[in-house]
Structures are given as C-alpha cells and as structure tokens.
Amino acid sequence: MRVGDRYYGFDQPGGDIHISGIALPRFESFYFNTKAPPAMSDAEYRDAIIEQAKKDAANGKFQTESPEFKRLLKSYVSVVSPDRKSIITKGLNMLFSKNSQAAAEKTRHLTLIEILLGERFFTEEGRLKYAEFKDSNGNMVANYANGGWNSYETAAEGARSQEFLQLYTATWRSVYHGKHGADNGYSEIGPGFYIEV
C-alpha cells in the first residue's frame, strides 16, 4: 500500500475518483483513514511496533520521518476508524442523485442525506461548497470545504493511536538514548542478567 506523504494541513485535495465533479479523498494517504481489516493480530502488531521503533532508532528516524512507521500506524488505527469511504460516497451519491430534490430544498423530513450530512451542507450556484459527514453516533468524521477534505478523529481512533505511539516512543527512546525501561517491564542491570521490576 502506497501511503501519500504530502501534508496539506487543511482541505486536502481529493484523488482520482469523482462523484459529480467532487474528487473523493485519497483514502490511501496517511492523512485520511477509513475503516480497514487488521493486517495481523494485536499481539503481532505489538511486536511489529517494537521492531519498527528499534529499526527507526537505529536509523536515526523518529515516527513520521519513517515511511514504514506511517504505514504501520495507519494500518493499526484504521482497524477502529469509521468507514469514511462509505459515509462520504453514500452521502455524495444521495446529494447528487436525481431524487435529491427534497434534500436540496432542506425539507424537515429526515432523509438519509440529512443523517449522513448532518443537515449541514451549503451550495453556491449549484456547486457543493461545504458538507459535513457524520458517523452513526452523529459525530463529524470528515468535512468538505474549500474544494478539499478534512478528517476528524473519533475517540476510538484517538485511544488506539495513543497505544501505538506510547509503545513506539518508549521503545525508541530506550534504544536511541540507551535508557532502560522499555515496554517489557524488565531492567537490565548487567550483561545477560535481568530482574523484574
């Protein structure tokens, strides 16, 4: 999987797939997650994170300086990401479908578009100017503004991301700075001699 590295900050440009002239987000990018099946078990992820941290520390790279770090983090977090691809695709298809008259007139009937778009979309001269995309809990997970895309984190994504970063960083520092106290709870007090702290 090729993971885009370009940082835009806000309003990320879309990719090659369009719906009614709107370029969909680059879901393969590091900067836009969508739900994906796990590539390995959590135990295997843990080992992979530790190995990546050791490798990056040996190479003098830290976190996002390493493309492999970005790939692994995206893979780990995407397991709990909302299905932004489906939410956005369905929302745009509904908005631009022939039957979207009711939504365009902002009726008070609860439609799929209103659920998906949270009743917040603005058009100007027939062009979509702004739209919010929400998950089933009503939390905004993405929006379209100024011709680009922004991604907003869920609590599950935040928690999973922190698990990854804390394990990676503790291991990285242990290797890079030669400090003790990596994730396994053992401290080295002499060659080949370990005591459980």
Binding site: F32, V77, E153
Partner: peptide
C-alpha cells in the same frame, strides 16, 4: 479554531 500537525492525520477543533 482548528489546529493541524504534519505528524497527525486528523484536525483538532
């Protein structure tokens, strides 16, 4: 305010 970082995929509000 919105705040973004080149080290994180999502934007904070």
């Amino acid at each position: 305010l919105e705040l973004s970082s080149s080290n994180k995929s999502t934007v904070e509000t």
